[in-house]
Amino acid sequence: MIQRSNPEPFTEHPASSPLTIHDMTVAYHRKPVLWDIDYNAPKGRLVAIVGPNGAGKSTLIKAVLDLIPRASGDVKVFGLSYRNQRSRVGYVPQRESVDWDFPVNALDVVAMGLYRKIGWCRPVTAKYRKIALEALDRVGMAGFARRQISQLSGGQQQRVFLARALVQDADLYLMDEPFTGVDAATERAIVAILRNLRDTGKTALVVHHDLQTVPEYFDHVMLLNMRLVATGPVQEVFTPENLRKTYGGKLALLDRVGHQMTLSGGGQ
């Protein structure tokens, strides 16, 4: 049932794969929401994570980041467990996950991406503020550095979140719906940044809702609906057949079960 792409010529030893998920199962309140996920992220590629609501897309990212416990399976980031590779992973959570009325400005939020580097109990010095400002500039937001974050548009807030991840200069980026509710300019800015990341050998896994733009924006796709439906290069895997398997239509038995579980509140 799970399709895999042919091994690509530049595929390295699995130990250096940006992200290896092995046999991962995640459960909320004893109900599994992700089953037996096996995945090897290709290096230097943009990967769309696609699937219906409640398919476990955010759950997958959070489980990789140790934010929610895994019922079984393990995750390796560049061959090591995530706790040893945190600085190499940039995380862009959903925009709705925070209170944008919080009394900080755009630069403050971006600087949070540097907090680990700055270290315990040390203040954010001018040197780090400069790095944060550069990251804001990369997302075209340098002019908004001093704006209180509630006074930014949705797209601008999203770009601030993106800058907070970029400032880390990570090798693997996990982004949870960065394109949701943003204006066209922001969408273009994000796409440009993603391509720039790819061109510099970075890898990004992006939860994405707009099926139409998947082939245009991404190289690889991961079709997810509580289990891995298919994964591989877009042109091979992003097929109507696979999308049907992911989104239902003629439901396979597993889909029906999965759908039931989503209805009963097991979904994320």
Binding site: K62, L65, D66, L67, R83, R86, V89, Y91, P93, S97, V98, D99, F102, V104, V109, M112, Y115, R116, R164
Partner: peptide
Amino acid sequence: FDEQYAAAQG
């Protein structure tokens, strides 16, 4: 501000 992010950052 962002507990989950803080946790992800370690």
